[in-house]
Simulated scan of single mutants.
Amino acid sequence: MGVKDEPQKAAVVSPFIKSFAGSIGGIAEAGCLQPIDTIKTRLQLDKAKQYKGIVDCGKQIIRDEGTKSLWKGLTPFATHLTLKYALRMGTNAFYQSLLRDKDGKLSDIRRMGAGFAAGITEALVIVTPFEVVKIRLQQQRGLSKELLKYRGPVHTATTIFREEGLLGLWSGAAPTVMRNGTNQMCLFWAKNNFDGLFFGKEEGDGRVLLPWQSMLSGFSAACLGPIATGPFDVIKTRLMAQQKSDGPARYKGLLDALVKIPAEEGFLAFYKGLLPRLLRIPPGQAIVWAVSDQIVGYFEQKQYE
């Protein structure tokens, strides 16, 4: 394949290439997994226990609002994922380049640090405003657009800006930072280690994993984040769903929600929506890595030719 038996130095692909690879993977993920994300959001907002689980939630949405309602918020979701993965992969590669030693090596601790920093960056720049818009659209119920407060992504964003100010688009930023930072810390560390554990692949060695291999290691790595960050994700959703027009805010912030939710609903309320997150995030990461590994691997191989 044009790869030397014992390369002296690992190939390092430009952050721009990794950014491009991530964006293509994000487009593929969004189209496939939006219904699971809609169900997850409805379950997390279900304080009245209207839904009995994932299947029941999906059935009720289809029955009451039509099948297309499972794709509510797709435009901001797809745009969000495309930009998010471009930023995530690119900034992670950038932070890794800053943390490598003189031989180009990256310890596990430094790899986790780069992932955490990439997660914080994407949370503040991309994730929070897009998720606020997406969640406001997903929480609405009904078929008639005339009866809905928000009639589309742009209308939602402008309405939030008009009623709540610019910072309204960054509602729930604190738990989003904690969720995404921890997620990416786990993801990039685990993906690299699962590549090595399952297939003997080392970063920059010029080998390209087969798509199914990338999917397996990406899926396995992505299982860690949702379990570690379940409480932050629930709090993030609750804070983003609050609207000034509904009256005084139920939760004043991250710490207030951290106390109120288990006191009022029990500790397991922090893991509402965990199963649909596990049904969405690991398969989504499997798709993203299957695409991005092929693109990054192509450019790695070019350095060994």
Rank of each mutant, 00 (worst) to 15 (best):
G2V: 12
V3I: 15
A10S: 13
V12H: 15
V13R: 03
K18V: 00
K18N: 14
I24Y: 01
A28V: 15
E29R: 09
L33C: 10
Q34S: 01
T38S: 10
K40C: 09
K40Q: 15
T41K: 05
L43A: 08
Q44R: 12
K49L: 13
Q50H: 07
K52N: 14
I54P: 06
Q60A: 10
L70P: 08
L70M: 05
L74K: 00
L74C: 05
P76L: 13
N92M: 08
K105W: 04
S107V: 05
R111H: 03
A117Q: 02
A118G: 03
G119R: 03
G119N: 13
L124E: 06
F130R: 02
L137R: 04
Q140E: 14
K145I: 15
L148P: 00
K149C: 01
F161E: 05
F161Y: 14
R162S: 13
E164A: 01
G165Y: 00
L166Q: 01
A174Y: 05
V177N: 01
Q184R: 07
M185T: 13
F194K: 01
G196S: 06
D205Y: 07
P211W: 12
W212D: 03
Q213T: 09
G218M: 02
A221K: 03
L224E: 00
P226F: 10
T237V: 15
M240Y: 03
A249T: 08
K252D: 13
L258C: 12
V259T: 11
A269G: 10
P276Y: 00
P282V: 06
Q285A: 09
A286R: 03
D293C: 06
E305C: 09
